[in-house]
């Protein structure tokens, strides 16, 4: 793990992974969309609105996955001071915020025809909204200080503390009475969803994961460049 803290080694790994991430994204999203829109059947209760699940659920999964990745790398950055870990958290934040925004918007578009309302202040929806604000807080805090290392440290602390929200989101549907349905895929006794719907859902989830990796690699390279630019500018200013 610590071997990857070396930026050169990490970027070499990124260059190797990038074409695979691109291929997985394009292949899974193309087949996932085909199955989601043409092959999967309408639900016996929710009719065709169930198709929103294929963009909503993977976005919600990625929102939590990205936050977990951001919190873990922030913790690594705080403990060991690794630049790579700090940049992973910084590069992940806008991607995770976008997935969270998507989960909220697509959930709202699914909620209106099924629940009769765009929004309700129940535990699941509110905790995901808090997650979105945590992402925004991380992004804003990172650039709020003239001293970038202080900004990174403050944002990392926020990410680590905010990680408590991730299990709350996951178990909110079990702990409280919510309008949101309980888990039907990630369950101890196996998924309670028919394979005709599970396959497109998993394909879309794979596509979203590949997309996250692809974007993470692109943004990491850009963040490394930004760091080098800042270092050159400081050197020039001190001459």
């Amino acid at each position: 793990m610590h071997r990857l803290a070396n930026p050169t080694r990490f970027l070499r790994l990124c260059n190797m992974v990038k074409p695979w991430a691109m291929a997985i994204t394009l292949l899974c999203l193309a087949t996932g969309l085909y199955f989601s829109l043409f092959k999967s059947p309408p639900d016996y209760q929710q009719s065709d609105t169930v198709r929103i699940m294929y963009v909503h659920v993977p976005a919600a999964w990625m929102a939590m996955f990205c936050y977990s990745a951001m919190a873990l790398s922030s913790a690594a950055a705080l403990i060991w001071g690794h630049l790579v870990a700090q940049l992973i958290a910084k590069a992940t934040a806008p991607i995770g915020a976008s997935f969270t925004f998507l989960a909220l918007i697509t959930g709202s578009l699914w909620g209106k025809p099924m629940w009769g309302t765009w929004w309700v202040w129940d535990a699941r929806l509110t905790s995901v909204l808090i997650l979105f604000f945590l992402y925004l807080g991380f992004i804003v805090l990172h650039d709020a200080f003239d001293d970038t290392s202080r900004g990174a440290r403050a944002a990392s602390i926020l990410a680590v503390v905010g990680a408590v929200n991730v299990p709350i989101i996951k178990f909110s549907v079990d702990w409280w009475n919510t309008l949101h349905q309980p888990a039907s895929v990630v369950k101890l006794d196996g998924p309670a969803i028919h394979s005709s719907m599970l396959v497109p859902l998993l394909l879309m989830a794979c596509g979203y994961t590949g997309f996250y990796l692809w974007m993470l690699i692109v943004r990491m390279r850009a963040e490394f460049n930004s760091n080098k630019i800042r270092a050159i500018r400081i050197r020039q200013a001190n001459r």
């Binding site: 969309l33 829109l37 309408p42 009719s47 065709d48 609105t49 198709r51 929103i52 963009v55 909503h56 976005a59 806008p94 991607i95 976008s98 925004f101 998507l102 918007i105 697509t106 578009l109 699914w110 209106k112 025809p113 997309f211 974007m215 692109v218 943004r219 850009a222």
Partner: peptide
């Protein structure tokens, strides 16, 4: 989409716009 097209297509459309937005921005 059984009368739900007004909800389903915007969900897919916004997803495509946001993902393309991240791609272009990155």
């Amino acid at each position: 989409m059984s009368g739900y097209g007004n909800f389903i297509w915007p969900a897919f459309g916004i997803s495509a716009i946001i993902l393309l937005g991240i791609l272009v921005h990155s």
